[in-house]
């Protein structure tokens, strides 16, 4: 789990570094970033309500603030916002948000606002990368930092799968089907990307996804 959380954190750091160092967000999907902010805000509503550990609270805070930062850069920064590929980033996010919400309203562990929003965030996270993957496919020369960002982000839920297997074996009664199935789907969505990422990495070439 620690490795999963760290790759998640690194992915965000890599993206912030890329944007800040190159003053460019080309190849980065604003739609995916906005979906992630929605995921973090709806999942971490309990930040001030239930306390698990200082570690958890800090990470929640970092995830919300950093994704807000990235969105701020992409929308408001004089130089960076000019480099956003708005014409290419056309994924219809309503097709991800509404089905996730409806599914959360129907399939959840407890019928309460907080629980439904939490479940919604789990469902939405599993598909939030899709606009970014579509944009990558449309981008001819994907820069290394952007592809590293997506690779790290994909590795994160993959490592969580190992964490869940471990916890399932060591903790009595540890079951969370909603999270597991969504996590499996989330990792599966990256399979195709992983294949081309590792292929280009082995050949020492820039990544370009076939259309």
């Amino acid at each position: 789990r620690e490795a999963g959380d760290m790759t998640h954190l690194f992915s965000i750091i890599v993206l912030l570094l890329k944007i800040n160092a190159t003053k460019s967000c080309s190849g980065v999907s604003l739609k995916t970033q906005e979906l992630y902010l929605l995921v973090f805000v709806t999942r971490y509503l309990d930040l001030f309500q239930s306390y698990i550990s200082l570690y958890n609270s800090c990470m929640k805070f970092i995830f919300i603030v950093s994704s807000g930062c990235i969105i701020g850069y992409m929308r408001k920064h004089k130089v960076v916002s000019q480099t956003y590929d708005a014409e290419q980033d056309t994924f219809r996010v309503a097709f991800l948000v509404w089905p996730s919400f409806l599914l959360a309203a129907v399939i959840n562990q407890k019928l309460s606002v907080m629980e439904i929003l939490w479940t919604f965030s789990i469902y939405l996270e599993s598909v939030a990368i899709l606009p970014q993957l579509v944009l990558l496919q449309r981008t001819k020369n994907v820069d290394n930092l952007t592809s590293n960002y997506v690779f790290l982000l994909g590795s994160y839920r993959g490592l969580y799968l190992l964490n869940w297997i471990y916890r399932c074996l060591t903790e009595e009664g540890y079951r969370q089907w909603i999270v597991w199935i969504s996590g499996l789907l989330q990792t599966a969505i990256y399979c195709d990307f992983f294949y081309y990422y590792l292929k280009s990495w082995r050949k020492n070439e820039r990544l370009s996804l076939p259309s």
Partner: peptide
Amino acid sequence: RRKSWDHDEL
């Protein structure tokens, strides 16, 4: 009833 591990991941 909330289980001890519920929502304890990120």
